[in-house]
């Protein structure tokens, strides 16, 4: 399985990934999914990951980047393409 950027989250990520792949192939791809059965494991993984993102300042970078991409999109839309 692919590694998490935070080594301390690898274990819980692997448990989540395993659950997801099983759900995805057994339920989702057959059109039989009712709910996301791996949501509880995802919450655990997210808790670990969010902490790591915060510690590394990546959470802010993600916010900034989302802000930036909105700005870029707006610039794309300008008729002349120039600022």
């Amino acid at each position: 399985m692919s590694a998490s950027l935070a080594a301390e989250c690898n274990e819980v990520k692997e448990r989540y990934d395993t659950c997801f792949l099983k759900w995805y192939s057994e339920k989702f791809l057959r059109g039989n999914a009712q709910t996301d059965e791996c949501a509880p494991l995802f919450t655990q993984y997210k808790t670990c990951l969010n902490k790591a993102l915060k510690e590394r300042g990546i959470d802010k970078m993600l916010e900034d980047a989302r802000e930036d991409s909105r700005e870029t999109d707006i610039e794309y839309m300008k008729p002349s393409g120039k600022s």
């Binding site: 692919s2 590694a3 950027l5 989250c9 989702f28 709910t35 996301d36 995802f42 990951l49 993600l62």
Partner: peptide, 13 residues
């Protein structure tokens, strides 16, 4: 590719 993480996942039934 050093790592891959899922930030968000939503399933619409």
């Amino acid at each position: 590719v050093l790592s891959t993480d899922v930030l968000d996942r939503t399933f619409d039934p």
